[in-house]
Design a protein around this nucleic acid. Structure first.
Lengths: 353, 353
DNA sequence: TTGTATGCGTTATCAG
DNA sequence: CTGATAACGCATACAA
């Protein structure tokens, strides 16, 4: 009799409590006025029947969805999953739910995911844009009133808050540190794909964080008088086999390369394995610095020197900024740079020779 | 003039195309009939205006939300983030979106998250229940018509599909393997918290996967004639310091413990660090096997022997099962056991003495 | 303080 | 084939 519909509504509670739908809605929604007696009757009825509000309907009415959308490159990567945790924790504390999706670092997937999230009427978006030159989908989100915060990446073309590491500066300071230890010939290795296996132009690097690190790398190399620094940027380190081939090239190169920079912790692990397999000893034969303080960097011997990117904090800050926007902050978009200090563990040594 | 409301609706498109709302809805929604001319007019207008459907409203109308809710113990843990990736990929391919939340392995948080997801009217739930003895919230979800699939964990009390590793069997086979190498005194180390630091009773282990592994461990120990196997289960390995204390206890114990089982890869890494710090050499002085084939297990030397839990596959299978349920499958709930083979890399050696 | 009536943007029914 | 019109579950002006 009573259970003809799938789930109960305010109307059911209202009639059970002998009040109008509006009154029941008011006390259940926690807004407007209601007498103490009415309130008690409604709450008692709701409890007894096991009423659960329908947030979908509420969102339709209010226009607010209570959802924020997140698009990261790859949730499997600890870099992002830590950031996601930071976002989740902060969002939840503010009563917001989080929908997460992956772009697999591909612009078509990123567009698709943003579109899906927009259709779900998310209140705001946190995105790690995979290509700084293709931001139209994010621009139009902003135009249509959905605030966007970019994570780990940034573009001057996009009027959105950004939370990033200080990539250019940290690349420079790492390189200077290495130069101080006598390393003139340093290579930068990234999983970014390219035809030639070497860097064409820094402008061709879609992920702004990587581009800025490379720019810093090139600037510091130039300044130290390193020859052909652009030839020292190796791309396509997408798996163990490809990375092993890069290591072979590196080891064969003359003048001898004495230090390696890994663009992220996955590349770092691949480099470490390839070097170890070839009997190269760290840091005696080769120095190594990896971006991101991943777990694995502290179980090797020696432990790996890293550029520490506190991505949980990235996530927290990004969520905080977004929440501020959702509360109506309309000040100028801000770019928040989070320091990413070098933690020199055991893989920076004096340059051999 | 034209842009008075925040976003456009079918009505806007309809009037722009000079058709009725109903007709516009039909072609935009891809249901019902429409003449070729009407269809063209509507699509053209939608394109021109930049119409984007409102999935919230659609969900309200249809009752289907197109969302599935996921509650894992900790998204930072590669075990879960891999599984989440498997879920996401599979769900997306079926046109479903995924809302992810963390329980932090605490039942109150798990309850809260399930409740939030239910209010969002998710179509189904994938949960890694943190306590097999507290499942009422999941039961009532099922009762109210929301299918549930449990991930990595399982309870006979819950009428839900489950996708798990074969924990009991793999624990037994690992122990037998160790026994074959002469190890009689083996310890099991877990991050589960307990007052005493040792196992009281297996029934007190809330996470069913861990309980089953411990049961297997105890059974195989008993059968091999190991004395007081229950004393060989060490709890509270929640961080490096606590784990180091456990290692001290282990090393001090007599008869000498010659092999360690790590309940997950975080515990494994902590054990590895503590052992290494103390100059214990693997596998000469101590053998070590960790559950989960985490990244870090292949950069140590020697590489770590692991029980391989293919959690991406766990996620895929769980999503597939859920999708099947959403399509109306009402057959008996099934428990899918996924093999978790031992990969013996370099940390199982002959027992010393 | 409470109730009535209407709107949110869809889908879906049912005459024309 | 098309067009009114009524849901869906809640919020909210406005009236009582």
């Amino acid at each position: 009799m009573s259970t003809k519909k799938s789930r109960l509504t305010v109307a059911d509670v209202a009639s059970a409590a002998n009040v109008s739908k509006a009154t029941a809605a008011r006390v259940l929604g926690g807004y407007g006025l209601a007498s103490e007696t009415a309130r008690k009757a409604v709450l008692e009825a709701a409890e007894r029947l096991g009423y659960q509000p329908n947030d979908l309907a509420r969102s339709m009415s209010t226009g607010r969805s209570g959802l924020i959308g997140v698009v990261v490159g790859d949730i499997e990567n600890a870099f992002f999953s830590l950031a996601v945790r930071g976002i989740s924790d902060t969002a939840r504390a503010a009563g917001l739910n989080v929908i997460i999706s992956n772009s697999s670092e591909q612009i078509t997937e990123e567009r698709e995911m943003v579109s899906v999230l927009l259709r779900q009427r998310v209140a705001g978006l946190i995105v790690a844009p995979t290509d700084a030159r293709q931001l139209d989908h994010l621009k139009s989100a902003i135009t249509s009133g959905v605030p966007v915060v970019t994570l780990d990446r940034w573009s001057p073309d996009l009027p959105a808050d950004a939370v990033c590491g200080d990539d250019r500066a940290s690349a420079i300071s790492v390189l200077q540190h290495l130069q101080g230890a006598g390393h003139l010939h340093v290579a930068y290795v990234t999983a970014m794909t390219s035809r030639s296996g070497r860097l064409s132009a820094p402008e061709d690097v879609g992920i702004s964080a990587v581009r800025e690190r490379i720019e810093g790398f090139l600037a510091a190399s130039d300044q130290a008088g390193a020859p052909t620094p652009r030839q020292m940027v190796f791309t396509n380190a997408t798996d163990d086999a490809a990375t092993a081939r890069i290591v072979d090239k590196v080891l064969a190169q003359s003048p001898r390369i004495t230090a390696l920079l890994a663009s992220d912790s996955l590349v770092g692990a691949r480099l470490f394995r390839a070097l170890t397999n070839r009997g190269v000893r760290l840091p005696r034969d080769m120095s190594l610095v990896s971006w991101f303080d991943a777990d694995w960097t502290r179980v090797t011997s020696p432990q790996i020197s890293v550029v520490d990117q506190p991505t949980y904090l990235f996530g927290q800050r990004a969520a905080e900024r977004l929440i501020r926007r959702l509360k109506g902050d309309t000040t100028e978009p801000q770019r928040l740079l989070i320091p990413t200090p070098l933690i020199d563990r055991g893989t920076i040594g004096p340059a051999p020779l």
